[in-house]
């Protein structure tokens, strides 16, 4: 019913609402992504030459960025759920916050292209095992970080 829709501030058809909302989400993702990328670059500049580079050309700074970013992404659903459950954030704002922090900030902060670039050297030198270990090690550590974060902050809190 239209009056009800008007009272709650929602438009009667979701489709009429969709384009504007998508643009809003896209805008916050762009802003978050710019900040995340900037943070990754600044961290790389700050750590340049200060971290030991382990055997096989593993970049510990890049690994920390990617695994740390994955951990924070794993915390996000539980965090947003708690914010909404506490009544401080509505459903619409939850979606905006989620886009800003998830695909935006953390998506821009973490990167696969830099990991792929790191494997080019070993691949060229026929050290395929080093390249594969580098790739798998990064992804396995990141997935483990997501799993740990989801356990620490589940979406459905234990009663």
């Amino acid at each position: 019913m239209r009056p009800t829709a008007r009272r709650t501030g929602r438009r009667p058809h979701a489709s009429a609402d969709a384009p504007a909302r998508e643009t809003t989400l896209l805008a916050v993702v762009v802003v978050g992504g710019a900040l995340g990328g900037l943070l990754r670059w600044a961290l790389g500049e700050a750590l340049e030459g200060r971290l030991p580079v382990a055997v096989g050309g593993v970049d510990p700074g890049l690994l920390a960025v990617n695994v740390g970013g994955a951990f924070l992404l794993g915390l996000l659903p539980g965090l947003l759920h708690r914010l909404e459950a506490s009544g401080r954030v509505g459903r619409g704002r939850r979606a905006v916050l989620g886009a800003l922090a998830g695909p935006g900030l953390l998506g821009g902060f973490t990167t696969l292209s830099a990991v792929a670039l790191l494997t080019v050297g070993p691949l060229r030198d026929d050290r395929v095992v080093v390249a594969v270990a580098q790739l798998l090690g990064t992804l396995v550590a990141a997935v483990a970080a997501v799993a740990l974060a989801r356990r620490l902050l589940p979406v459905e809190p234990a009663p």
Binding site: A34, R40, L106, T111, S113
Partner: peptide
């Protein structure tokens, strides 16, 4: 860097 994502 921004196009790719490892966290996602």
């Amino acid at each position: 860097g921004g196009l790719t994502t490892l966290s996602g």
